[in-house]
Design a binder for these strands. Structure first.
Length: 526
RNA sequence: GCUCUGGUGGUGUAGUCCGGCCAAUCAUAUCACCCUCUCACGGUGAUGACCUGGGUUCAAAUCCCAGCCGGAGCACCA
């Protein structure tokens, strides 16, 4: 009795038990824990990326989790670009769209998209209001000076400035009358607070470098994350904030501002950092950017790059990444994401649709071997006809010409031994040729011969397969020429990959590192 | 130094709030077997964890104490 039948039977015998079982199943579908104080239809969450480059795989976690909760609570997904640092983490103008594309690839679409750099006047207004409420003061201490006082729990001399001076000095900040480092606006918190991280933090500072966005290039007075993000979260109606443990103290800092404004602070959840195994490259936008600039990586979508764009180009479904990310849960400890988990999820999604094709690798340590197939015990057929998919005969089969063929050297049997060319038949290796034996599948069923993939030497496509471990050259069967780019296929006994491009004009002579192959493919995983 | 925060198999996770049904769930991983014209898919099985030490209790992964180890913040970065 299979699962469905068993359930049906249970439904007849004990309907209440079945209902219980199904209720449990519902529970189980929720990989993520429930959100605290979440009301259906009244949940607003935001992803707040700094657009200083395209996303790495770790970034997928935020949209994956927010998107999942959005669906569960019929909530809202706000994407707010926190691009308030034109200098140190300078925004990259292409990154805004790149990030939105990354989110779309993951299968989500933000309900609202905001840019903090569009909202400076709003932040200034709130700063003025905060000053009027006695919650902020301008300060011209150097960073070191203030740090020393702060660590001792001592106020700096500017703390007791009269409100009028603060107003004037802040107006001058907004007008850009100071240079970087000359003046900041601090939030008056509690200079003796037991946690030094919370004492009178900076809300606005001067930056001399113009913002890359033309619309914001005139501003010199920029809010710090805690101020900008705190104000925006309230103004956009965010009910649940999810962020990394590096921002653990942010909520505590922002609460001082919220208290001045008499706002209610949203629910906050923190999670740990995500590490991804399998990559030597550090998971950081600036590190990856550096590697690309140094030529170590060919771009953000280099198969060796731990980026969303790379996953996409390799044919890994955004959903696979989302599944893996939600499986990480919401723990505050650091987690290691195993790429094998992403691969397993992707295999699940892709296996049924991916048609099968042969690709014979030609590697230094395992070169492809070219041999003619000759008549042996029986006349050799002209071609093999393996199915496009073993579970879907209805999709038909491919034609693989079989005059001179290539096989991978480790697949070659000892001289005199037989091997089964998949979709073709049994051949005997005779040193300089493969002699056709027969097409009686019985030898395979009995386990007497190994089954290997192969490709025609002349008609095959010179192929470049780009993998995480470097580029692999080889020859693929000609049927791949009819496959549309962007299709995910399975290279039999090699693994899944995505067809990137086909160039029928490519000639045999023009073998170079780029653009010379007939076929370009990206490798996903086994 | 001060302040947070966390420790369940290789990885992730459930269980911890309200102690027993936990000799600990599920997934992935690894290995084996079955299936199979793939090393894929599917099926079966195996491997493998409660940080340590005390305490409370009839009973502790769960409560208490101490210790050990880890992560984060104390930026005019986000």
């Amino acid at each position: 009795m299979d699962e469905a039948a068993r359930r049906e039977r249970l439904g007849e015998l004990a309907p209440d038990k079945l209902a219980e079982l199904e209720a449990d199943d519902q529970e189980d579908e929720h990989v993520l824990p429930d959100l605290p104080n979440a009301e259906d239809g009244a949940v607003v969450m935001r992803a707040a990326p700094n657009p200083n480059g395209p996303w790495h795989v770790g970034h997928a976690r935020m949209p994956a989790v927010i998107g999942t909760y959005k669906e569960r609570y019929d909530g809202e997904f706000v994407c707010r670009f926190d691009d308030t640092d034109p200098e140190t983490k300078r925004p990259d103008l292409d990154a805004y769209d790149a990030i939105l594309e990354d989110i779309a690839y993951l299968g989500f679409e933000p309900d609202r998209v905001l840019r903090a750099s569009d909202r400076l006047e709003t932040y200034y207004d709130h700063a003025r209001e905060l000053i009027d409420a006695g919650g902020a003061y301008t300060c011209s201490c150097s960073g070191d000076e203030f740090s020393e006082l702060k660590n001792a729990g001592e106020p700096c001399p500017h703390r007791d400035k009269d409100a009028e001076t603060v107003r004037e000095e802040f107006a001058a900040m907004v007008d850009g009358e100071y240079s970087a480092g000359e003046m900041v606006l601090r939030v008056r918190t509690d200079i003796g607070h037991k946690n030094p991280a919370l004492r009178d933090w900076v809300a606005f500072r001067m930056i001399d470098t113009p913002h890359p966005r033309e619309e914001a290039a005139d501003h010199r007075c920029w809010p710090m994350l805690d101020f900008q993000s705190g104000v925006d979260d309230h103004l956009t109606g965010v009910t649940h904030i999810i962020r990394g443990i590096d921002l653990q103290d942010s909520a505590k800092r922002q609460r001082f501002v919220y208290d001045y404004f008499d706002w209610e602070y949203p629910e906050v959840l923190h999670w740990g950092h995500v590490q991804v195994d399998e990559y030597d490259v550090k998971l950081s936008t600036s590190t990856i950017k550096g590697l690309i600039e140094d030529g170590e990586l060919t771009g953000w979508d280099d198969p060796r790059a731990p980026t969303i764009q790379s996953m996409r180009r390799r044919g890994i479904q955004g959903q696979a990444l989302v599944d893996s990310m939600t499986e990480l849960g919401m723990s505050t400890s650091d987690v290691d994401l195993a790429m094998s988990s992403v691969y397993a999820n992707n295999r699940d999604l892709v296996d049924d649709a991916a048609n099968r094709y042969f690709f014979v690798r030609d590697r230094d340590d395992a070169p492809a071997v070219e041999l003619p197939i000759v008549d042996g015990d029986a006349p050799a057929p002209e071609a093999g006809h393996p199915p496009l998919h073993p579970d879907h005969e209805d999709r038909g089969d491919r034609e693989v010409p079989a005059g001179r063929v290539l096989v991978e050297s480790p697949d070659l049997p000892s001289e005199g031994e037989r091997v089964w060319l998949k979709g073709y038949g049994c051949v005997r290796y005779e040193g300089d040729a493969l002699a056709f034996v027969d097409a009686d599948i019985e030898v395979v069923r009995e386990g007497d011969v190994d089954v290997v993939h192969w490709a025609p030497a002349a008609e095959g496509l010179d192929t470049l397969l780009r993998t995480v471990d470097g580029d692999v050259r080889g020859v693929a069967e000609p049927a791949l020429a009819d496959v549309d780019p962007d299709t995910v296929v399975q290279f039999v006994r090699v693994g899944f990959g995505r067809i990137d491009g086909f160039d029928p004009a490519a000639t045999d002579e023009a073998d170079g590192p780029n653009g010379s192959e007939d076929l370009l493919a990206y490798y996903a995983h086994p």
